[in-house]
């Protein structure tokens, strides 16, 4: 495969990842959608207002890791989603592939089932996109 073809494939995959995040942002109450790598670095983000990406990236990884570990302590293996319910809204994080996590920040008026449904349906696609994106 030529380098140009690989570059185009990567570009279209990256733009599809952006479209997915934009779509998640269009759900009522969603204020930020981000993809975080295994070092806690925010690789893609769409948001309504300024957020400290370094801090949120590391925190999401830490919270997800801690939740997955506590699940393992009670014999639950394979953490599919961590939901953090706050007074002002929710933070939902879902693993994608190779340590990457998709995180959504919502306001209180977000419909949890709507956001969760969209996340659950989006993850298999993101997994495919990422495994191909990382392989290229």
């Amino acid at each position: 495969m030529s380098n140009i073809h690989l570059l185009n494939t990567r570009k279209s995959q990256s733009s599809e990842i952006d479209s997915i995040l934009r779509n998640l942002m269009s759900i009522q109450g969603v204020s930020a959608a981000a993809i975080i790598d295994n070092d806690g670095f925010v690789t893609h983000i769409h948001r309504d207002s300024e957020v400290n990406t370094d801090a949120i990236g590391a925190s999401v990884q830490v919270v997800f890791g801690a939740a997955a570990r506590s699940a393992a302590h009670v014999g639950h293996h394979g953490t599919n989603m961590v939901i953090c319910e706050n007074t002002e809204g929710y933070i939902l994080s879902t693993p994608i592939d190779a340590g990457f996590i998709l995180a959504l920040v919502t306001q209180r008026d977000a419909l949890l089932g709507r956001v969760r449904f969209e996340l659950k349906e989006t993850i298999p696609v993101l997994k495919k996109l990422f495994s191909s994106y990382l392989a290229n």
């Binding site: 599809e16 779509n23 696609v125 996109l129």
Partner: peptide, 23 residues
């Protein structure tokens, strides 16, 4: 969702569109 995905980007966009219509 079940369509074989020769083109991941296109099938992702298609799925998103049909999910959007359903919702």
């Amino acid at each position: 969702q079940k369509k074989p995905a020769a083109n991941i980007v296109k099938s992702s966009a298609d799925m998103r569109e049909s999910r959007g219509q359903f919702i």
